[in-house]
């Protein structure tokens, strides 16, 4: 299978506010030495708690930010070595679905406009073609083409996330980065959205980077998983293997989590986070 995304030795640190005036600027190592590969049709889960570096990873893969070290290759191209016009052309090949369907759509634009936005970069597509592609994308995510004229606030959270997914697939990308795509949704909607992502992936042969703090979701949705802790990928492999026979103690502690098993009360009092 063809490799769609690969990271090798990627690191990124962010400066924190100075503790003292003129003192040294402390750095937060948000991501250290991360390496991974993702092939067409495959879903790789990135799991970790808040601050583990999984969102930084997504930002770097999407080229919103540059790594301090390491290489990020999307569709065979090093996105940080590519000249701007070529990166712009490559962008149709990798798209993102954000966590918050309220914040990821411009409230002042009809959703059809937002879905068409990724197509604007391609001068070969004229307005009628764009409209046709938007209508197709809306149908693919289970909405009606007429819904494109509505504004985001006229949709429920789940429908908005469908709109965001339509925007993510309208360029027919090879890679979709999904950052906590269902955690802002009501529980009864989550299944719909996850099933939709699975269907689209099967239809389009998408590679998916699925970022979540929720182990059960990752176990369900992903083929392979990378567990992140304090900016490092501490363990990775096929989901069934990592989750049933975790090698790292951190992975074990994630899996032994209160959500699934109740911890001993005594331990709580002495071992406060």
């Amino acid at each position: 299978m063809s490799v769609v995304l690969s990271l090798s030795g990627v690191s990124r640190a962010y400066p924190l506010p100075r503790r003292r005036l003129l003192g040294p600027r402390p750095m937060l190592q948000a991501l250290s030495d991360a390496s991974l590969t993702l092939s067409a049709g495959e879903t790789l889960g990135i799991v970790g708690e808040s601050g583990s570096g999984k969102s930084t990873l997504a930002r770097l893969v999407m080229g919103f930010d540059r790594p301090d070290a390491g290489r990020i290759t999307v569709l065979g191209q090093d996105i940080n070595a590519l000249p701007a016009p070529e990166l712009r052309r490559l962008r149709a090949g990798f798209q993102m679905v954000f966590q918050d369907p309220f914040g990821s759509l411009d409230p002042r634009r009809p959703v059809g406009w937002s879905i068409a936005e990724p197509l604007l970069a391609d001068p070969a597509l004229d307005a009628p073609t764009r409209r046709k592609r938007v209508a197709e994308a809306l149908e693919q995510v289970g909405l009606r083409p007429a819904d494109g004229a509505k504004f985001p606030h006229q949709f429920s959270g789940g429908q908005r996330q469908r709109v965001a997914i339509a925007r993510g697939i309208v360029t027919r990308p090879r890679l979709l980065v999904a950052d906590e795509p269902v955690s802002a949704l009501d529980v009864s909607m989550q299944g719909q959205i996850l099933n939709l992502l699975s269907d689209l992936q099967a239809q389009m042969g998408l590679a998916m980077l699925f970022i979540s703090h929720d182990l059960a979701l990752v176990a369900h949705q992903c083929d392979r998983v990378a567990v992140m802790h304090r900016g490092r990928i501490v363990e990775s492999g096929p989901v069934a293997q990592v989750f049933s026979h975790p090698r790292e103690s951190y992975t074990r502690s994630l899996l032994a989590r209160p959500e699934t098993k109740s911890a001993d009360n005594r331990e709580l009092v002495n071992n406060t986070p």
Binding site: L194, N195, S198, L215, A216, H220, Q221, P238, V239, L255
Partner: peptide
């Protein structure tokens, strides 16, 4: 609507993803 961790980890590698 919620996937359950215990049941799903049993899904063998490469087995089709069940629908939620």
């Amino acid at each position: 609507a919620r996937p359950r961790l215990d049941a799903l980890t049993l899904r063998a590698d490469g087995a089709p993803r069940p629908r939620l």
